[in-house]
């Protein structure tokens, strides 16, 4: 943590935002799918403003193939096949510093239901309150991702696929948590979160 802060300080004092610049080849490769300002495009999720530690961890998960979601296998395994650890850190740092914009593409009518589940869970159905880990503004912390403003389709797909058994290799809390959500819970949560800024 402190080391990361130190790097930030040095970069800020040095007048850069990261060790990498938007026009560098590595970034352009990512932007091809994730959009020029990394706000997400089609099936590729937004990376802008995502937590540094989370981004770095996912890149390693793609590389060692523990993140085995269908689109991860199809797109990301190849995209990071030759990524060295230092470049992975540089990319994570670069994307984490870009300002995120909310997708706003869920069903607005489901926002109150989704917010209630996010804030308090559904204890009698053994569904946890997401806010305990992801934070009151869905901003994430360390290796726990920001959820606010990700696209509806991506959020829904991610939660559906944990319930189906993808990306279960590691002892993460999410496969267990998502497995207890009903399809209606997932619709409501994905809708609500897509509007959170």
């Amino acid at each position: 943590m402190n080391f990361v802060k130190l790097i930030f300080m040095i970069l800020i004092i040095g007048g850069w935002t990261s060790g990498l610049h938007a026009d560098e080849l590595a970034i352009r490769n990512c932007a091809w799918c994730h959009g020029t300002s990394a706000q997400g495009y089609m099936t590729a999720p937004r990376l802008a403003g995502q937590r540094y530690e989370y981004l770095e961890k996912q890149l390693l998960n793609f590389k060692n193939h523990t993140r085995d979601n269908p689109f991860s296998m199809q797109y990301m395994w190849d995209a990071v096949a030759y990524l060295d650890p230092q470049t992975a850190r540089d990319l994570a740092l670069y994307f984490s510093t870009l300002p995120p914009k909310p997708a706003n593409d869920g069903d607005w009518n489901l926002v109150p239901v989704g917010k209630a589940i996010y804030d308090g869970g559904i204890p009698q159905e053994n569904v946890v309150a997401c806010t305990a880990c992801h934070g009151p503004a869905a901003e994430g912390v360390r290796e726990i991702p920001r959820l606010g403003g990700l696209s509806y389709a991506y959020l829904k797909r991610r939660l559906d696929q944990w319930g189906e058994g993808f990306h279960a290799a590691a002892q993460l809390p999410m496969p267990f948590i998502a497995g207890k959500l009903s399809p209606a819970d997932i619709e409501a949560l994905a809708s609500y979160l897509s509007f959170v800024r």
């Binding site: 946890v128 305990a132 880990c133 992801h134 009151p136 994430g140 809390p173 267990f176 207890k180």
Partner: peptide, 14 residues
């Protein structure tokens, strides 16, 4: 799901 898979605690936002 919150208190850790073996009840050993967990670092979330809280």
């Amino acid at each position: 799901d919150c208190h850790g898979r073996q009840g050993q605690g967990y670092h979330g936002f809280l």
